[in-house]
């Protein structure tokens, strides 16, 4: 399971996690480790439970079995007060943005700063302006979430997630619904942030370009067997995974490799694209 990674100790560990909605078991026996500084990709076919896994990792849903650990400490078993403290190191960007609609963009980003730091009003305003500028939303401080586009909501959600410079950032499909250029920019931004802040990043995505461009480690959820099919560096999984369905998924850009058993729609040479998009960064990341 371990790949060429050498960087960092374990940041998040998921142990024997079973996820269920009532009696409907979605995934069982998930085991993987996210190391400090990783850009960790959660991938798999649509509807296989990626968002649900993310909700388990950030404590919005309780595991049916198993636990999630942060820095060796159990998050699942932590008492509510301790959990609240642990959660403050998280930054979460939701699939739809989930901005607080009764507040302006500036207020959205400012709220965690006001509540958790003793910065002056002026300092808060400067930081807010900076974070919004980072995601390309300068000048939109006083807009309400309903008055900007979906993609802009998403980016504002990113600015809010970064407000407290969290140790670990979670993204649910950051680039879905963005035009290719904005998606690329967002990928770059995520990479840049992870490097400069030393944050760990956990991303749910099925955009192949993103997977190869930013991912250093990954887990692949398989909807058929209801458990994880593979984990490791996405580039290596694409070339060397023993599982055919994983290679198929990573080579073709079809969300669910099984939808087209005869290989009808997509050409089979999509694999080159990933290599081209891959940054010439240090290979040990």
């Amino acid at each position: 399971m371990a790949t060429g990674d050498t960087a960092g100790e374990a940041h998040v560990e998921v142990r024997d996690l079973t996820m269920a909605y009532g009696s409907f078991v979605l995934m069982r026996d998930l085991n993987f480790t996210v190391r400090r500084g990783d850009v960790f990709i959660i991938m798999g076919g649509s509807g296989c439970g990626k968002s649900t896994l993310l909700r388990h990792m950030i404590g919005l849903k309780e595991p049916a079995r198993g636990e999630v650990l942060y820095g060796g400490e159990s998050f699942t078993a932590a008492p509510p007060g301790r959990r609240e403290q642990m959660v403050r190191n998280f930054g979460v960007m939701y699939q739809s943005g989930a901005l607080w609609t009764s507040m302006t963009l500036a207020e959205n980003v400012a709220l965690p700063l006001e509540q958790y730091t003793d910065l002056s009003k002026r300092e808060v305003r400067d930081i807010v302006a900076y974070k919004l500028a980072l995601v390309g939303l300068s000048g939109f401080e006083d807009f309400y979430p309903a008055d900007i586009s979906g993609g802009m909501n998403k980016r504002a959600g990113l600015a809010r997630a970064m407000a407290l410079d969290p140790e670990i950032l979670f993204f649910d499909e950051p680039s879905a619904g963005l035009d290719p250029l904005s998606a690329k920019r967002l990928d770059d931004l995520i990479l840049h942030l992870a490097e400069s802040l030393g944050s760990t990043v956990v991303v749910v995505t099925h955009e192949l370009a993103s997977i190869f461009a930013i991912g250093t480690n990954s887990v692949f959820l398989d909807v058929e067997s209801r458990t994880m099919a593979a984990s490791g560096d996405p580039g290596q999984l694409r070339d060397r995974s023993p599982r055919e369905d994983v290679r198929l998924f990573l080579n073709r850009g079809v969300a669910d490799g099984k939808s087209f058993p005869n290989g009808a729609p997509a050409a089979t040479n999509g694999g080159d694209r990933g290599d081209r998009d891959r940054p010439a960064g240090p290979p040990d990341r």
């Binding site: 404590g59 919005l60 998280f90 939701y94 989930a98 609609t101 509540q115």
Partner: peptide, 9 residues
């Protein structure tokens, strides 16, 4: 939005 509140602690 309530989820977002919770994940900010």
């Amino acid at each position: 939005e309530i989820d977002a509140l919770r994940t900010f602690g």
